[in-house]
Each structure stands twice: as structure tokens, then as C-alpha cells.
Design a protein around this nucleic acid. Structure first.
Lengths: 196, 196
DNA sequence: TGGTGAAACAAACGGCCGTTCGTCCGGATA
DNA sequence: TATCCGGACGAACGGCCGTTTGTTTCACCA
């Protein structure tokens, strides 16, 4: 046999990324084998190389795409808002929604920095720095305007991000609380924590 | 050659655990090889089996010991305190101190639940449940006494724990802020967030 | 309708994996 | 001083690893 009837490069590449996310989340990147991945997608191991250069490039592509979408959607969520309280509320709602719907991706991006080659890791860390800087800026604006009162803006930003990201650890789509209710609860905690 | 001069079971076992923590943190449990571990400790691969039953038992032993020490030290930190604000402050200070000094262990315990066999995983999840329940109880007491005001005690507990645990992601012993200062900053955020 | 290139296959490369086993040394006990 | 056994060695087991290669097929466009 050779090329399968009905095969399609775009679609296969998407299947590979999706299955890759599942397997990396389950086993860790280094422990995920390309043979598992190929089986999951329904290919021979060698055929994967029609869709990426090597295993490292697959990880980088997954994490980079995630970070760029995260940043783009954050920009959209904040667009047109200028009041710090409004912006922080919008950030909180966006961050929670994104993290509740893409838990595996978020987990990988946070835990597999260690498996990226130095150059790739630096690129991702830079993107993450832009995300964090946005939150720092919101808090700094609020402090300047008197809306917020925090002793250390950077620590507060890390604290807020970590608190919200923690939703990934326990949220289940069929759980006790819905996404909107969770967003309300967390956002209340955030605002109370940073309001003077 | 055979038994090395000056060898000592207790000491070797401790070296194995320490090196194991480093390697699991660096590569993930499944991706850590016992050959790497043996090299790190200065043994042949087969000799490791004088100190654990198998790879899985090594992971379980590391995580279980960590969780039991965490619970024991939490108990000590809260001992004799009854006021909810006092207890939450003590919890925050303890949690931060513990997590700043044992970052790799904490990371492993949080990320390698996936690599534990079902029975072992359940045992660890139960220990973690006791830790979380302690925080829930502190918050519930505070709500009952009027000291705290949170809409959902469980969500608030998860939020507080995640926020504080996040210190592992950025704290460096030689960084801008010392442990006491960080503890003060985080504890302020926590108390402001849950105080009515 | 013929040609071209994307996308698949099968097989193989050297190398590492967790674990078991038979052996032997050397420090503590009797 | 004799003996026991904890703790090490080294070799081996079957099996999986990431990647490369040569070949083949099918979808699409001129």
C-alpha cells in the first residue's frame, strides 16, 4: 500500500497535533513515543515526518501556536477598555474561559518548557513575558489611578495569574459549577485582593 | 568487583531519592531512565534494585514521603492557633516557606500523579484531600465567625492554594525578594481576598 | 488524459529501555 | 577467627526508541 485513498495533508496534520497534545499531556513529551502517536493517528511512524521536521519541532509548533492564540485573544478581550477595574475584570474572565476550555494545551505549555531546545524555549518565554507584562501594566495603571492598592505589582500579577490558572486543576465540564459562575467567584477574589 | 568499600545502604538510598527527584523534575518520570539515575548515583543499573522494588515504587515513595511531611509540618504550623485569621496567616506563611524550599518535590507531586498506578494515585490524592480540607475548614470557620466573606469556600480554598503554590514558578533564592518579604506580600493578598 | 508532487508504506539503522540473574566482596556478628 | 548477608558488579533478556530511506500510490492541474 502507499498513499491512502482520501488522505489530506491539512487534516492529517491537525489530527497529529490533536493526538500529540493528548499524548504529551498523558505521558510527558519525552516519554511520548512517535510510534504511539502514529498509531493514534492511523499512520506508520515514518509517515509522521511528512508533517513535521522532527519531534522537537512538533512540540514547539504546538506550544507556539497556543501562546500566539492566547496573546491574540487577550488583545481582543481587552480591546476598547481603558478603566483598570474594567480591564482586570475582562482579563480574569478571558483567562478563566480560555483555561477551562484548553486545559491540556495550557498544561503542556507550562510544564514542557523544559523539553524545548534553548532557542525554542527562549521564544516561548518571550511570548509568556508579553502576557505577564499585560497583567502587570493593568495593575500598575490601577495603582496609579488609585483604583488598586498592591505593595508589589509584579508579585501581585504572578499571584493573580497563578490563582486563575489553578482552575485547570479541578474544573470539570460536568462539575458542580458552570463556567460563568466560576468566573464570577474568581473575579470577586481577584478584585478584592488588589482593591485598596 | 563487587561490594564497594565504604558502601552504606541508608546513605545510598538517600542519594538515589535525591537524584531521582532531580531527574524526574528535569525529564518527567516516564522519561527518566534508571541508567541515568544509576550513573548519577555512581552505581550499575541493576544495583538500584537493592534499594527499591521497581521504578514505580521509587516514585510512590518520593511522593508519599513528601505529602506526609507536608501534612505533618502543616499540623505543627497550625498547632495551638484557633482564630481563623491567625490560622490562615500561619497557613500562608507555612505553605510559602515549604514550597520555596522544596520546589522540585512539589512540582513532581503535582505533575506526576499521572504516572502513579491507580492504587498509589488514590493514596496520594487522599493525602492531598486532607491538606485541602484543612484550608477549607479554616475558611469555613472564618465565614462562620464573620471574619471572612467568600461566596464559595471550596473555590476560595483552591484559589488560595494555587496562588501560593505559584511561588514555585518564579522564586529564586538569589532573586530580588527574600522569603520573608514574599510571605508578607502573598499573605496580604490572601487576607484581602477573603476578608469581608 | 498525462504528469507531477504530496503523502503514504515497509524495512531498517544503532541505541537505549526496565528488569533479572549469578556472582563475589567486605563489614558486622558469633 | 569463621560465617553470614547486605550491597555491589556485569552480562543478558526481549522490546521499544527516533529517524532515514526507497518505493508506491493517488489527487489535482495543465
Amino acid at each position: 500500500m502507499a498513499r491512502t485513498s482520501g488522505s489530506n495533508g491539512e487534516r492529517t496534520a491537525a489530527h497529529i497535533r490533536d493526538a500529540g497534545v493528548r499524548l504529551i499531556h498523558r505521558h510527558g513529551f519525552e516519554a511520548m513515543s512517535l510510534r504511539q502517536l502514529a498509531t493514534e493517528v492511523g499512520l506508520q511512524p515514518g509517515s509522521l515526518y511528512n508533517h513535521f521536521e522532527n519531534k522537537q519541532a512538533l512540540l514547539f509548533e504546538i506550544v507556539r501556536t497556543h501562546m500566539e492564540e492566547l496573546l491574540a485573544e487577550l488583545g481582543a478581550a481587552l480591546e476598547g477598555r481603558t478603566d483598570p477595574v474594567d480591564r482586570l475584570t475582562a482579563f480574569s474572565a478571558f483567562h478563566l474561559r480560555y483555561h477551562m476550555t484548553r486545559r491540556m494545551l495550557v498544561y503542556i505549555a507550562n510544564s514542557e518548557l523544559r523539553s524545548l531546545e534553548p532557542g525554542n524555549r527562549e521564544a516561548i518565554v518571550a511570548l509568556r513575558g508579553r502576557y505577564e507584562a499585560t497583567v502587570v501594566a493593568i495593575l500598575a495603571d490601577g495603582v496609579a489611578s488609585g483604583a488598586f492598592k498592591v505593595a508589589d505589582v509584579r508579585v501581585a500579577a504572578y499571584a493573580v495569574i497563578a490563582m486563575l490558572t489553578g482552575v485547570c486543576d479541578w474544573y470539570r465540564p460536568d462539575g458542580r459549577l458552570g463556567q460563568e459562575e466560576i468566573a464570577r467567584l474568581y473575579t470577586d477574589l481577584v478584585l478584592k485582593g488588589v482593591t485598596g
